[in-house]
Amino acid sequence: MPLGIVIRKVPGVTRWVSHVWQAVAVLPGAGNTAWKELRRDGETVEYHAATLPLELFRTDTEAYLHGLSAKVPAIYVVMRETSGAHPLEVVLATASPYEAQDYADTGEELVEKVPMPEGLIAWIRDFVELHHEDEVFIKRRRDKSRVDKQEDGIGDARIRQTSDVYRAPSSKEIVH
């Protein structure tokens, strides 16, 4: 599904930061555009920064369920700072909190959590209901054989005496 990403530019509150950029909304089914101004209120401006495909995968339904069960279900927008005409490049929009965490862990991208509209929640929930399969937990069983009873290969084979197998060999004791 095409998903428009709305980014808001607000004035900074310190003299070191002139503006702050933040992803604030998503537009399901949006047309393809880049950095179109949507709204202006004084120095605060909202842009339709990009339209990206929101892709859902059958193997990630557990992550989508986790995201939908949050107090406020969200779409995660991954952005990267650029030095070009626009300050941010929108890289990805995902419904998977696990994938968003992977991007956040690198520290190279900005990850914003944007509330999911009701229609998008229903669309993702329908996808999960259609494709989710619970995985049965199978506890791993330990092998019953005792391997600690035999001391095989202990110590250094180059040492002839058995008194201290852990000491380093001297040049006289090395077996040729």
Rank of each mutant, 00 (worst) to 15 (best):
S18M: 09
I124P: 08
A50Y: 01
F137W: 07
W35E: 01
W16G: 10
V90G: 03
E129W: 01
A122W: 03
D152L: 15
R15N: 12
I7T: 05
F127Y: 15
R167V: 10
E108H: 08
Y47L: 02
W123A: 15
K9M: 10
L130Y: 07
K149A: 05
Y103W: 13
I138E: 14
Y98D: 13
H66A: 13
A157T: 09
E89A: 09
I5H: 01
A93L: 03
E55M: 01
D148Y: 08
H132N: 09
Q150M: 11
L130T: 15
I154Y: 12
F127S: 08
G67Q: 04
K144Y: 05
M79W: 01
G153M: 06
V24M: 07
P73R: 08
W35S: 02
L120T: 15
G84W: 04
A122Q: 15
V91C: 03
G67M: 04
K149R: 12
L110N: 08
R125M: 06
I121V: 15
L56T: 03
G42S: 10
W16T: 11
E89M: 09
E151M: 10
I138M: 08
F127N: 07
H48R: 05
G119W: 00
D156P: 01
A70L: 11
I124W: 10
P2C: 00
E118M: 06
T59P: 00
A93V: 15
P97N: 03
P169M: 10
A34T: 14
F57V: 04
E109R: 01
R15M: 11
I5P: 01
V10P: 00
E118I: 06
I154K: 12
K36L: 13
A70T: 07
P11G: 10
K139E: 14
P117R: 07
Y166F: 14
H48S: 06
L92Q: 12
G155D: 06
L38D: 12
L92E: 10
T59E: 15
F127A: 04
T44R: 12
P53V: 05
F57M: 04
V6W: 04
H48W: 09
P73L: 05
E43H: 09
T61I: 03
V175R: 14
E133C: 02
V147N: 13
S171T: 07
Y64K: 02
K9I: 04
A70F: 03
D134W: 05
P117N: 08
A74N: 05
T61F: 06
E46A: 02
V6R: 02
R158N: 13
R167C: 03
R125F: 09
V26R: 05
